[in-house]
Simulated scan of single mutants.
Amino acid sequence: MAVSTSSAAGAPGYRVPPPAAADLVAWPESFGTRFTVLVDTEEEFDWDAPLDRDSHGVSAITALPEAHRHFVDRGVPLTYMVDYPIATDPQAIDILRAATADGVSAIGTQLHAWVNPPFDEALTPVNSFAGNLPESLEAAKLDALTAAITSAFGVAPRAYRAGRYGIGPATLGLLAARGYRLDSSMRPAYEYLAEGGPDFGAIGAGAFRAGPGGAIIELPLTIVFTGLARRGGVGLYRALGTIPKGKGIFARAHLLSRVALTPEEMPLADALEAIAVALGEGLRLLNFSFHSPSLAPGHTPYVRDAADLAAFHHWWDRVLADLERRGVAPASLDTIIAAAGERTNASP
């Protein structure tokens, strides 16, 4: 994947190019079929209000220890993708230090440009996608966040996610130059063009090598099309978007649904079907995610009350049991990076 070295701002609406077949990660047979959970560990804010630099808090982080135990008691390591307000809050740092003392969970990086210094850009929707910023400013924000995380946790982060999935043409080169090994900013089959964000229509769910010299392991979030017409994929799904209620009609008729592996706004039955489809199509690593403020009611649109929180945990109980039944084992960040580094002829 080509990486721009321009110091000018990335053009809004970056259409992320697909990987070459030779760049797809060939997982070694010893890796088996795995899953991982990356947590967008971030401040809470009003999702319905315009983004701003100051109207946020970090109180939801106090719900993290109980949730962490919920996973590690099942043998599931978590990778916490930490943004600047979390990485600079003493209580959040203490909580995450304790969580990652389990020896298998890890700290990664998540860049929310609008709350991450330096603040040299206008606060606009387009600039909330860090990849749209001038390369020098995107780099400066990444340096500030990487330094804060390294100082807080005593180790340099190796995994990255752009907030709002806001990757740009310079991002992977910036990551590689700073020693990052894995990026998970790509959300297959989604696009944010109307807001000036990227388009991932050409990206599939399989991991691939990207950036200069293939230095970065790109691990997209796992997005699966289900239904009788799923072979139509992103092309059919987007075409349905031009027809009034087209997507809803096809989803209710079990013809085509786009399912992300997250408990946030994705029904359990749909997620279980998506897991079955992904594994049936030979995907070797499933990438799950959720936002840390969803661990406490009232901070995200997905968990507004105690009933929603109970449903959130029930979703995970059922999904983890299904993965265990299918022989799909959890994988830590270290395990993924080590396995992807082994070049083999195994299937992706």
Rank of each mutant, 00 (worst) to 15 (best):
D183M: 06
L323D: 01
A63K: 02
D322E: 15
P117H: 09
L78G: 01
L272S: 10
D120V: 13
H291P: 04
R343Q: 13
T300P: 01
D102E: 12
P244T: 10
R252Q: 14
V155K: 15
P18F: 11
P157E: 06
L255N: 04
L38Y: 11
A147K: 12
I86C: 05
P169M: 03
S185D: 05
P267A: 12
A140E: 12
W47F: 15
Y190M: 14
L255T: 06
P157C: 09
H313A: 12
L279N: 03
A276F: 00
A8T: 13
E66T: 13
A306R: 15
T41L: 12
S4F: 00
L24W: 08
G32W: 09
L133T: 04
L283V: 13
L279W: 06
T150I: 07
V82D: 03
R209C: 03
L219E: 02
R181M: 11
L142G: 03
L123Q: 11
V259K: 02
R161A: 09
A21M: 01
G248T: 08
A144R: 13
A139P: 00
A49G: 02
F153M: 11
A311G: 13
H68I: 05
R325S: 15
G103F: 07
H56D: 00
A202P: 04
K141H: 04
A306N: 12
A139N: 04
R304L: 14
R258T: 09
R304D: 08
V3D: 04
A269V: 15
A189G: 06
R231I: 11
G75L: 07
T5Q: 13
N127K: 05
A321W: 02
P118K: 07
V277K: 05
D334L: 03
R252H: 12
I107L: 10
G154Q: 11
D322T: 13
E281W: 00
A321S: 13
T335E: 15
L279T: 08
P169W: 01
T262H: 03
V72Q: 11
Y302M: 06
R209S: 05
G246P: 06
T146C: 07
G213R: 07
S184V: 06
G168D: 02
S332M: 06
I223F: 12
P301V: 10
F45Q: 02
G241Y: 05
R252S: 14
F71K: 05
A311T: 12
Y302S: 14
A177N: 09
A101N: 10
N345L: 14
G298L: 11
T150N: 04
F119D: 02
P188Q: 08
Y302C: 06
A194G: 07
L24D: 00
A177R: 14
A21R: 12
Y80L: 14
A2D: 14
P188Y: 08
S105F: 05
A274G: 04
P18K: 09
E43F: 06
Y302P: 01
N116G: 00
A321Y: 02
A92R: 01
E324F: 00
D270L: 14
L111N: 07
F71P: 01
R187L: 15
A205N: 01
T300I: 10
L286F: 08
P348D: 04
T344S: 14
R343M: 11
L111G: 00
V234N: 14
S7C: 02
G241S: 08
R53N: 01
E66G: 13
A9F: 01
A63E: 10
V37F: 04
H70L: 15
V72A: 10
L172S: 03
F119Q: 03
P90I: 10
Y237L: 09
